[in-house]
């Protein structure tokens, strides 16, 4: 099969999407490589605009227990940054055409070398990078390399960013990832009231689309964010289904696998379809 050639940039995909811009996060290699490919394609089919592909890390400081367990499973299966970049190539060969953002903690990226990482990611078919523990003060080198290769470096703003919001928003590329509330990743039933004022403020400041993440798990939250943000990033809620369905997802029986993938698609459609 041919490599997908008609892939949009992150910014194009984010700008063209009507509400909600939907950015699912999945962990590379959980429960295994093949399942990751099928999950990615299912999410595309279900309406994902951009895929965030997580690189498993031994010490994920910004993650709650669910994504920690997910990373551990992927690491046990031998997944690595290199392996995940290979996986993107394979996904492209299997027909994944939405932009892919590589989500990695900074240490695996430094170990590979920032320049090599950007080069390899671009050549594998990635369109952006998001490094949760690389604030703007430390990101100038990777941004320079990324610009050369046409990759978007996705920035995050948090409810505690205060005076930093403007500077971060003015440098944002692709879309701006707005962290909904304090804390680590994981599902939350609702956001604190003050979250909406904060997201509005970010939206006013940002020149690129704003996607809200951390804790989105139900339809009600997505409805409440309509008119406030441009979109949503959903990770833990999807990986929770992956965890529950890990046996089915790796089953040798195709019907079992499809059944599990359908669970994911059904969840997505209850979340985003109008």
């Amino acid at each position: 099969m041919n490599k997908a050639t008609n892939v949009l940039t992150v910014e194009e995909a984010a700008t063209r999407a009507s509400y909600p811009l939907f950015v699912p996060f999945i962990m590379a290699g959980d429960p295994d490589e093949e399942a990751t490919i099928s999950i990615a394609l299912s999410l595309q089919e279900a309406g994902a605009h951009i895929l965030e592909l997580g690189i498993p890390y031994s010490d994920p400081l910004a993650d709650g227990p669910l994504l920690q367990r997910s990373a551990q499973r992927a690491l046990k299966g031998g997944m690595s940054l290199k392996g995940a970049l290979r996986l993107i190539r394979t996904m492209r060969e299997h027909g994944l055409t939405i932009p892919v953002v590589v989500f990695s903690y900074v240490n695996p990226v430094l170990r590979m070398g920032e320049e090599t990482f950007v080069k390899e990611a671009a050549s594998a078919g990635a369109n952006g990078v998001l490094i949760p523990d690389l604030p703007m003060e430390e990101s100038s080198l990777i941004s320079t390399f990324a610009k050369e290769k046409g990759l978007s470096v996705i920035s995050l703003v948090a409810p505690t960013s205060a005076h930093r919001i403007e500077k971060i928003a003015s440098q944002a590329r692709g879309f701006l990832y707005c962290v909904s509330s304090l804390g680590v990743t994981g599902t939350r039933d609702a956001f604190p009231d003050e979250a909406y004022a904060f997201i509005r403020k970010v939206k006013e400041t940002s020149t690129v689309p704003v996607a809200v993440g951390f804790g989105i798990s139900n339809r009600r939250q997505v409805e409440l964010l309509d008119g406030v943000s441009d979109g949503i990033v959903v990770g833990s809620a999807i990986m929770k289904i992956v965890e529950e369905q890990q046996e089915a997802l790796t089953s040798s029986n195709k019907a079992d696998r499809n059944q599990a993938l359908n669970e994911i698609k059904t969840f997505v459609s209850t979340l985003i379809s109008s």
Binding site: L61, A62, V106, P132, D133, L134, P135, E137, E138, S155, L156, V157, A158, P159, T160, S161, A162, H163, R164, I168, V179, L182, G183
Partner: peptide, 20 residues
């Protein structure tokens, strides 16, 4: 002023902690 000792040090943390 960047919190470095030669090459080492810095602030590699999630944005949530930067202002703190």
């Amino acid at each position: 002023e960047r919190g470095r000792y030669g090459d080492y040090g810095g602030k590699y943390v999630p944005e949530t902690l930067m202002y703190a």
